[in-house]
Design a protein around this nucleic acid. Structure first.
Lengths: 206, 206
DNA sequence: GATAACTTGTGAAGAAATTCACAAGTTCAA
DNA sequence: TTGAACTTGTGAATTTCTTCACAAGTTATC
């Protein structure tokens, strides 16, 4: 398959959210124009994005909401459940573990790890915090799909290497640190400091 | 000034983080090549990014770490302190309020708001939660620079409009909802669900 | 069935971002 | 002073992403 741009995948996510909204409201069809208006993009962009994966619409009519959202879920790999582990049971890690929005979209949090012995054994939202040292062994028995890193920046690289060695091929990184991983491993970063700096720049130079 | 791409600003943030690291370690100069290696980009990209703002390096030698980081802080608007308010004192909002990493970079959290009367009056990390209804009045007296939205998706648009009306010109949005705001308002979104879906796509189509 | 009003899908054009490649400046050693 | 080894800054080339524009298909109305 032709390489799909990151920006395209992000937009597919956005489209899917709208479609699910429309689905709930019982609307049967939607045009690329309507989809674009809510996503802050153009109808041509919507059609081009979708065209990488096939042609799902009907000329003159638009897209079937039910069909298109099903196709997008399929494209995004959301038809299956993904096993997610959270590493780091600090403020952010704990907040993530308790946030149930993930489960709704098929991302099931199966374990929380921390390296601090004082935290190991405690519970977060029904999950017992496990020792990070036990990850390699446990990952062998029940391989997780995605590791969420909510550790301090200083520990991030080390933990990432451990995670990669354990066979995990996708990382969502909350630590403000640029991870170096093999390119077979997918990494997405959520970096609040960077976003704030983006706003600071906009306010300063806008 | 020529319009600067978002991706450029993000990279400047990344460069700055490395530079601060180097500064701490007492390293005096750095080349675009070294800066690039850690940011996962190329030396040409680094030089091009910087060239939009001036020429800060010395041929044959590289960049002065101290000087370049000072210039980047200036460019990103990090020389002053920004007043930040958090709206929504749920799991995410509370975790953000307690996260002290922001303050270190000049983003001072000055208030937390919530519309739930049961939460108003309680404290989070030393800050009393205020009624959202009081925001317009209070913003008049002490105008905040940035509003962090940590509210449910269903409330996000409404709250955003309130924030804009209160004169705030920058929003960091944690709600999984695409905000519609005037283009004079800068918005950055932190969308964990979207990032996870990006990973799901990568795992599925990788 | 003819016509008007829509809307998709997609090559082509255009814009934007990235990479190349090299002149020009700097440092160091002999 | 010369030469070798670096490194920047930047036009030009290239690649990537977005927008344009229109043929072709669909629906609704009379």
């Amino acid at each position: 398959m032709k390489r799909i741009a990151d920006s395209t995948v992000r937009r597919l996510s956005i489209y899917l959210r709208f479609l699910e909204d429309f689905e709930k409201r019982g609307i049967a069809t939607i045009s690329s124009d309507e989809l674009a208006a809510r996503g802050g993009t153009t109808s041509a962009q919507v059609r081009k994005d979708l065209s990488f994966f096939g042609s799902f619409g009907k000329r003159g009519l638009g897209y079937s909401v039910a069909e298109l959202s099903a196709r997008l879920r399929q494209i995004l790999g959301l038809e299956r459940e993904w096993q997610v582990i959270i590493i780091g049971a600090g403020k952010i890690g704990a907040a993530l573990a308790q946030y149930h929005g993930f489960a709704q979209r098929g991302f099931r949090i199966v374990a929380v790890y921390d390296s601090d012995p004082a935290k190991v054994g405690r519970s977060v939202d029904g999950l017992v915090i496990r020792s990070l040292a036990s990850l390699p062994e446990e990952a062998k028995r029940h391989p997780p799909d995605i590791a969420v890193l909510a550790v301090p920046a200083t520990a991030a690289q080390e933990v990432a290497e451990m995670v990669v060695k354990a066979g995990i091929r996708a990382i969502l990184n909350f630590a403000p640190h640029q991870l170096q991983v093999p390119e077979s491993v997918a990494v997405k970063a959520v970096n609040m400091a960077m976003e704030l700096e983006g706003l600071s720049f906009a306010l300063t130079n806008g």
